[in-house]
Amino acid sequence: MVERNDIGLTELRRGVLVLATLSRLRAPQYGYSLKQALAEGGMPVEEGTLYPLLRRLESQGLLVSHWNTEHAPPRRYYQLSPEGERTLAALTAAWRDQVRVMDGFLSEGTAR
């Protein structure tokens, strides 16, 4: 049985995964290195979640990718597109605004 807290955490995490992913792709990374970077930053993600997300972000024009076949094994590298850079800046600003709002909401309960 899934606990209600697990559902809330899953939804919260899903909402920030795009921002976390875009923030790690300012420089080119292949899927596994991105997975490691996210985990090291405190946001582990399963391959079954990450790779579909990368494909979706690329289809939305936020990422560009290329294959590097110079080393074995060949790896597909992802990086922000110019539109992805603009989107990252906009999402970062929105995130910071939401953090301020939520800090206000959450501190109301402790200020009494």
Rank of each mutant, 00 (worst) to 15 (best):
H66Y: 14
K35R: 15
L19D: 00
R75T: 01
R86K: 13
Y77H: 05
A90D: 13
R24I: 04
Q98D: 11
E47L: 09
D97G: 09
S23W: 03
S65T: 09
Q36M: 15
L91Y: 06
R24P: 02
A93T: 10
R4K: 12
P28L: 03
D6F: 01
E83F: 01
V16Y: 06
E11S: 07
A90Q: 12
K35E: 15
L34R: 06
Y78M: 02
A20K: 14
G61P: 04
L38Y: 04
R13H: 08
A20L: 15
E58F: 05
M43L: 15
P28C: 06
R100S: 15
V2Y: 11
L38N: 02
R96Y: 06
Y32C: 02
S33Y: 05
R76V: 09
T92K: 10
R14I: 05
L63D: 01
L38E: 08
I7C: 01
A90L: 12
E70K: 05
R76F: 03
L38C: 09
L34C: 12
L34Y: 05
E11F: 06
R56D: 14
R24V: 00
L91G: 05
R55H: 14
P74T: 01
L9H: 09
L91H: 06
V18Q: 14
P28K: 03
L88M: 09
E47C: 00
G84I: 00
R76G: 08
A93K: 12
H66T: 01
T87H: 05
L19N: 12
L9Y: 09
L53V: 08
Y32H: 13
L62N: 06
V64S: 09
S65P: 11
P44S: 07
R4I: 12
T87M: 10
T92R: 12
L19I: 12
S65M: 08
E46I: 01
L53W: 07
L53P: 09
Q79T: 04
R26L: 08
S59Y: 02
V99A: 15
R86Y: 00
W95I: 02
T21M: 12
Y30K: 00
G42L: 03
I7R: 06
V16T: 08
L54V: 06
V18N: 00
V101D: 11
N68M: 03
E85H: 05
Y32D: 11
D6P: 02
V45N: 11
M43G: 00
Q36W: 03
L25G: 04
L62E: 06
G15A: 10
N68R: 11
Q36S: 13
V18W: 01
R56E: 15
P74H: 07
R4Q: 12
V101T: 15
P74C: 01
G31Y: 00
Q29I: 02
T69I: 03
A90P: 07
Q29R: 14
R24S: 09
T10K: 05
P52I: 13
G41Y: 07
E3Y: 04
Q36F: 07
Y77W: 07
R75Y: 00
A27W: 01
M43H: 09
E40W: 02
E58K: 14
D97V: 06
R55S: 15
R75G: 02
E70H: 02
Y30Q: 07
A89Y: 00
L57K: 04
I7N: 02
A93L: 12
G61R: 02
